[in-house]
Design a protein around this nucleic acid. Structure first.
Lengths: 364, 364
DNA sequence: CTGAAAGCGCTTACAG
DNA sequence: CTGAAAGCGCTTACAG
């Protein structure tokens, strides 16, 4: 806008009176009707520079003389100028928003990932938008919505995404990081070594004497399901067992999914004496069913989880699990994404593996 | 933009080749360098109408003849047109983004509120941005950031917000809904009746024979702390006790806060025989300390929580608590906000009270 | 190191 | 019911 900025008469809205000093006394009323936000031109005028220069100071995209910068910064503070994000996006191409797409907000693991991202994004003044997407269709449409909104980058736990959606993302030129999945060319990957974590927890069960170890997986197509199953099989093979003989059930990554899968596994003959669940929520469901069927955990049935959410240490018996550092994962995702946004990385697919940790508790 | 739209040569970016039909064969390479997004003018041209008309169809802000509308919608689909949100915001004044400000993402209660909001926002194609803000300063700066970003509305659990910040919000004309706090003029309020919930759980403890009932509160200034304390006192008074004599400790709404407060309360003389915690996380901390000090729950010490997060039913002993319907609360917040955005409400401060429910488990 | 000018892609009076 | 024109508030070549 272009009215003369009379900061004396600026009202609580952050608005500037357009009426000029003469009407200052009316300003409070007048501005509510005819006011307009402080714009870059108001700042330029107040600082005695051009709008371009104000823009340079705000964006930091080209050098500005120290004294000029000081005058501009002073004017910005005095007028309480806040750049209009829509205008900036339209001209500059950045929305200042990063998206996180997770399968569900009901698993406390994901909010912690979000909190970790915020640790990095807030200091950079980037907004975080979070979408929960269950089922393949909703995941695809969630991604599409975010691309339409021109978010600057996406972190996704791409369970059930179609390959096309991911490819679309890459082709749209939106930087992205996937979380705990298979590497996707063009985007970075943050994960923990799920194969190794599942191998360790299975080896632990074997060392405790359990022999009929079953695997309780989430969505069959999800990478964590597949890799954790691979880890179980690798431990069984190393112990001289037949990995193909292990009982396996696939449901979904929820407590209820865990219940269903466990009922199914316990109905097999021979019934398993240990269940390696693909996450803690499912393991909690397994313990529900064990209690329901009068099985003692860990005597009749051992149960292990994955992630180490807070509930894992609260349930009785407390849950043996593999710690997955959610907050660190969130931070790593945000850092990788920012490096892409800053243009520090091109044509590279990076992988960050964070360390997991076997936590032995009462359930095994 | 204004190049002639040749949708045959549109590439995967959703871009339109600017080179025209003659260079169609080069388009794939060419467009990556010189392409531009499909714009409203491309759609207008393809549909044989003006840009204004396309805008009316997209925004639905004025009637369009059925046949015209059909032609436009067809062109939009064919060209895969997606309005530029920055341009729309600049001209139209709406960002299409709603914000949720919560004290922490580590309490699973808040992600569930977010999920409830998504139930309402996603069908309306609104983006949800979530900010965790601990401590008064960070809360204020979080709100200020969101106002700068011109979000369309804010839902806030305003623990530790300064009154000025809330007033600033109202004065900035940003619709807002507060969650579980005191009513703020100009914004709506969604809550459950905390006084009554705390009164019920305290009456339950009294009926079980507990007499030295202490209250374990979060931030002293937070409305839930104050109202739940009021409920406890009201129950004590109704039973003929002296409400002022009840032991009270204020820490913060976390498991660790619960531990500290409980240690403090147990050190008093006489020690309490029951602790009413201001939320489940704090109650879990209280149970931690009881175990640590060799106290049996509920025999030596009863503990009750508030919210009924999933962990409440997992811990041993399972937690007596008051159910707070997080997802419903989120939905109600989003609905109220949308009604304000739609202009259906003016100069009214509405309050929605959702029903709570006493859940008696093993800890009392 | 700085400024004048063009224009990003929409929406909205205004006129018919 | 529809169109031509102006302009939202920025950023970015371009020129000095």
């Amino acid at each position: 806008m272009s009215s003369s900025a009379c900061d004396v008469t600026r009202n609580l809205h952050g608005h500037v009176c357009v009426c000029g000093p003469i009407l200052a006394c009316w300003c409070k009323t007048f501005c509510d009707v005819r006011s307009t936000m402080v714009g870059i031109r108001d700042v330029a005028e107040a600082a005695g520079v051009s709008a371009s220069t104000v823009s340079q100071v705000v964006t930091g995209k080209r050098p500005v003389a120290a004294t000029t910068r000081a005058r501009v910064e002073d004017a910005i503070a005095r007028l309480d100028y806040r750049p209009h994000p829509g205008a900036a996006q339209l001209r500059g191409g950045r929305s200042g928003t990063i998206a996180l797409v997770v399968p569900t907000l009901e698993n406390p693991f994901y909010p912690l990932v979000a909190a970790g991202m915020q640790d990095i994004l807030v200091p950079r003044d980037l907004l975080l938008t979070i979408t929960d997407s269950s089922g393949p269709r909703r995941s695809d449409s969630a991604i599409r919505r975010l691309v339409s909104r021109r978010v600057d980058g996406i972190v996704a736990a791409p369970f059930g995404f179609s390959t096309e959606t991911l490819a679309e993302l890459r082709d749209a030129g939106v930087p992205f990081v996937t979380l705990g999945a298979a590497p996707v060319p063009g985007g970075d990957l943050v994960h923990t070594d799920d194969v190794e974590g599942a191998r360790e927890v299975t080896a632990h069960l074997l060392s405790r004497g359990y022999r009929r170890i079953a695997f309780l997986g989430g969505d069959e197509s999800a990478t964590p399901t597949r890799q954790r199953l691979e880890g179980v099989r690798s431990a069984l093979a190393a112990a001289g067992g037949d990995p193909a003989a292990a009982a396996v059930a696939f449901t979904d990554f929820t407590r209820e999914g865990g219940r269903q899968g466990t009922r199914e596994l316990l109905a097999r003959d021979p019934a398993p004496d240990a269940i390696v669940a693909a996450n803690d929520l499912m393991a909690i469901g397994a313990i529900d069913v064990a209690r329901e069927q009068g099985l003692r955990v860990p005597d009749d049935l051992a149960v292990t989880g994955y992630d180490d959410i807070e509930a894992a240490s609260l349930i009785t018996p407390s849950l043996t699990t593999v710690e997955n550092p959610a907050r660190e994962i969130g931070r790593a995702c945000a850092r990788l994404l920012l490096e892409r946004l800053d243009g520090a990385v091109e044509n590279v697919t990076r992988t960050v593996a964070l360390s997991h940790r076997l936590i032995i508790r009462e359930s095994s």
